[in-house]
C-alpha cells in the first residue's frame, strides 16, 4: 500500500492524523486523495478545488517526481511508493 506523508501545516487542520502512519489503498494520485478524504473528511478540498484539480500552490510528489496531471491526478501510484503532499514554495 502506498504510504502518504503530509506537510506539517496540514496537521493544524487535521490533528487526528498527526503521528499516524498513513497507508492507503490507491492506484492513482486521485485515489490517494479520495482515500485521504475518507480518513479525514474535508481533506480533499484542502488539496484540490471543487473541480478536482490540484490547487495552484499545492504539490503532490510520487517518490521523487511531482505529479504531472494536476487536472485529474491520473498519475499511477505503485503499491510500495511514498506519496508526499506539500505546499509549493511559492512565496516569501
Amino acid at each position: 500500500m502506498p504510504k502518504v506523508e503530509l506537510a506539517r501545516h496540514l496537521y493544524a487542520f487535521f490533528p487526528d492524523l498527526e503521528g499516524k502512519e498513513i497507508n492507503v489503498e490507491a492506484g492513482t494520485a486521485a485515489e490517494v486523495v479520495q482515500a485521504m478524504e475518507k480518513l479525514a473528511p474535508g481533506f480533499a478540498f484542502y488539496i484540490c478545488d471543487e473541480r478536482g484539480e490540484l490547487r495552484r500552490h499545492v504539490n503532490l510528489f510520487i517518490e521523487q517526481d511531482t505529479v504531472r496531471d494536476r487536472k485529474h491526478l491520473s498519475d499511477k501510484v505503485g503499491p510500495d511508493t511514498r506519496v508526499y503532499i506539500l505546499q509549493a514554495l511559492s512565496g516569501g
Binding site: 490547487r55 500552490h57 505546499q87 512565496g91
Partner: peptide, 8 residues
Amino acid sequence: MIDHGHWG
C-alpha cells in the same frame, strides 16, 4: 472567511 494561500 479564511483565504489560505495554499489550501483555498
